[in-house]
Amino acid sequence: MSVRDTMIAKLTERFSPLHLEVIDESNKHRGHAGWREGGETHFRVRIATRDFDGLSRVAQHRAVFETLDAELKDRVHALNIEVLPAN
């Protein structure tokens, strides 16, 4: 399973998102810190979930980071999180 697919599975299981995109942006970071041949090092997550209702932006991001902890410790160098309205 790819890192992207693993991230999708974990975020879906934890948050039951109304909208979820996990975008591999590694190609934009070729030659930068943390980049590796084959990609799957730099990602953008766009997520909308009712689970974030009432949480601060920091708490929302922490929840995503906690969910993807293993990936961030192993393969993923950078993660950009965009929380979208859940309406």
Rank of each mutant, 00 (worst) to 15 (best):
M1P: 15
M1L: 10
S2N: 14
R4P: 11
R4C: 06
D5K: 06
D5V: 06
D5W: 02
T6R: 10
M7Q: 07
M7A: 15
M7C: 12
I8H: 02
I8F: 02
A9W: 03
K10V: 04
K10D: 10
K10Y: 08
L11K: 07
T12V: 05
T12C: 14
E13M: 12
E13Y: 09
R14I: 09
R14V: 06
F15P: 02
S16T: 14
P17F: 10
P17R: 12
L18Y: 01
H19Q: 08
E21R: 12
V22R: 04
N27D: 14
H29F: 15
H29W: 12
R30G: 00
G31L: 08
G31W: 13
H32I: 04
H32W: 06
G34N: 10
G34I: 12
G34C: 04
W35N: 11
R36P: 03
R36W: 04
R36K: 15
G38W: 11
G39D: 06
E40W: 01
T41L: 02
T41V: 07
T41R: 12
T41A: 05
H42R: 08
F43S: 05
R44K: 12
R44A: 08
V45S: 03
V45H: 03
V45K: 00
V45L: 10
I47A: 05
I47N: 14
D53W: 01
D53K: 01
G54W: 00
L55C: 07
L55W: 01
S56R: 00
S56L: 00
V58C: 08
A59W: 07
Q60A: 05
H61Q: 08
A63G: 11
A63H: 08
F65W: 05
F65C: 14
F65K: 15
E66F: 03
E66L: 14
T67W: 01
L68N: 07
L68S: 05
L68R: 01
D69I: 05
D69P: 00
E71Q: 14
E71P: 07
E71L: 11
K73I: 03
K73R: 10
K73W: 13
R75T: 13
R75V: 04
V76K: 01
H77M: 06
A78D: 04
L79W: 05
N80T: 13
I81T: 05
V83P: 02
V83F: 08
N87Y: 03
